[in-house]
């Protein structure tokens, strides 16, 4: 019997630090993020696979992904 478990993630974006450079949006492999004006917002949290690319490519310490 196969058991699958959905992993749930929480994305924290610090609006004070984000400069809207678009790097996290461009590098996200599952298109979780999008730009809202000059700020990054989460568009589709269910698609997040927790790869942390957004965190590692963010130059501004603005985004982090936590596993619930």
């Amino acid at each position: 019997m196969a058991v699958a478990e959905k992993r749930i993630f929480r994305i924290e974006i610090d609006d004070r630090l984000c400069k809207g450079c678009n790097l996290c949006v461009d590098f996200c492999p599952t298109n979780v993020l999008t730009m809202d004006g000059n700020l990054v917002v989460v568009k589709d949290l269910d698609a997040c696979n927790g790869c942390q690319l957004c965190d590692n490519r963010c130059p501004d310490f603005a985004i982090q992904v936590f596993e619930e």
Partner: peptide, 28 residues
């Protein structure tokens, strides 16, 4: 569980955001 790296012990509080331009690689 995946835990992101905690930068706060190494970064001076209150000094961020840094002066580097949007998209500058120096932050990475």
């Amino acid at each position: 569980k995946k835990v992101p790296f905690n930068y706060s012990p190494y970064v001076r509080g209150g000094k961020l955001p840094h002066i580097w331009c949007p998209g500058c690689g120096h932050g990475i």
